[in-house]
Design a protein around this nucleic acid. Structure first.
Lengths: 173, 173
DNA sequence: CTAAATCTCTTAGTGGCTAAGATATATATC
DNA sequence: GATATATATCTTAGCCACTAAGAGATTTAG
C-alpha cells in the first residue's frame, strides 16, 4: 500500500471534515431537545428506543453510559411527558421494558424533518452505488468507533503506571 | 430520477447506520471526557480550539450553544487544569482569546489514539478515489446539517399557532 | 431453602447550566 | 469631546440532571 503524501493529507482532511460534521450533528440534537423542551439525555434515550425498539431500563443505562438512577429520572420525565410507557416484563418481573408512545413521540420525530430534508437533498446527488459505499463506510465506521471505545475503556484497567500521565477519574460502568 | 423501492430502502438503512455511528461517536467523546476527568462541554471546547485554533470566549459560546456564563466556567476549569490560556486581545480589550497549551493538551490528544487507529484501519480499505467521495460527502453533510439546524431554530420564530403542537421552551441564543 | 446475583428505584449531595445583571471597553451620535 | 448605546466577558443565585450508595424486589445457583 503506497502511503503517499497526498493520501496522508486526504486522510487528515477527512478526519477534520468528519469531526466538524459530527459536532454539528450533536448541535442539531441539542437544538431538537431544546425545542422539544426535554433534556439531552431524554432525547438520546428516545433515539435509542427508535433504533432498538422496546428495551429495558438497564439497557438504556448501558448504551447511554448513565447510571441506572439517572435512567430512572429520564424515564420518569419521558413518561410524564407521555412519550414512553413502562411495561414490567412478565417473564422476569425485575425488568422494566420501555416503549415509545407513537402518537406523542411523533411530535418529536417531526423535529427531525429539517434534517431529513437536508439529507435527502445531499443524498440525491449520489448514485445507488455511491450510496452503498457510504453505507458500507457507516457500518464499518460504527464498528471501528465501538472497538475504539472499548479500547479506551480498557486503558483504565491497565496498570496505572503504564498509562499516559493524566488525571484519571474512575469510569462509570 | 428513479425512486425505486430499493433506493428508498437503501436511504433508510443509510440513515439508521449514520445515526448509530454518530451516536457511538458521541459515546466515545463522553468516554474521553470521563477518562480525562473533565466535563463534556470542556472537551467539546478543546475540540473546537483544536479545529479553529485561537478563538474568543464568545465564539465558544456561539459554537457550543452555551451561555457566556457557562463558557466562563468552562474556561476557568480548563485553565486551572493547565489545558488552555486566557489572552486579552490588545486591539479590543473586551475580548479574551483562548488558546490551548500544547504540552498539556497533548495528553488529551492521546486519548484519541484508539479512535485514530480504528479509523486508520477502516480507511485503509478504501482507495483514494473512494476517500475523496467520503470527503465530499462529509463536507456536504456538514453543510446540510448546518442548514437543518438553522431551519429548526427558525421554527421558533414562526407564529406559535402554526407550529407543531409541542411544549416549547425559549431557545437560547 | 438459603445465599448470591440481578434489576430497578430511592435518597442525599454535587456540579454545570441558565437567566439576569454587573463590569469594562468600544463605537456612534450630537 | 461628551454622552449614549452596543459589545464582550464575568458574576451571582437558583435549578435540575447526574453520581454514588444502598434499599427493595425478583431470579438463579448451590
Amino acid at each position: 500500500m503506497s502511503r503517499t503524501k497526498a493520501r496522508v493529507a486526504l486522510l487528515q482532511e477527512l478526519e477534520a471534515a468528519m469531526r466538524r460534521s459530527s459536532a454539528q450533528g450533536v448541535l442539531y440534537g441539542q437544538t431538537v431537545a431544546n425545542v422539544a423542551g426535554i433534556a439531552n439525555s431524554d432525547l438520546e434515550c428516545m433515539d435509542i428506543l427508535y433504533l432498538e425498539g422496546r428495551v429495558t431500563a438497564g439497557r438504556l443505562a448501558e448504551v447511554t453510559g448513565l447510571t441506572t438512577g439517572a435512567i430512572t429520572g429520564v424515564i420518569d420525565r419521558l413518561e410524564k411527558a407521555g412519550l414512553v410507557r413502562r411495561e414490567r416484563d412478565e417473564k422476569d418481573r425485575r425488568k422494566v421494558f420501555i416503549s415509545v408512545v407513537p402518537e406523542t413521540a411523533m411530535k418529536i420525530g417531526q423535529l427531525y424533518v429539517p434534517m431529513q430534508q437536508a439529507m435527502e437533498k445531499v443524498f440525491g446527488a449520489y448514485s445507488d452505488e455511491e450510496l452503498r459505499l457510504l453505507l458500507r463506510f457507516a457500518n464499518e465506521g460504527y464498528k471501528g468507533v465501538l472497538a475504539a471505545t472499548e479500547a479506551l475503556k480498557s486503558l483504565l484497567d491497565t496498570p496505572p503506571e503504564k498509562r499516559p500521565d493524566l488525571k484519571l477519574k474512575k469510569l462509570r460502568r
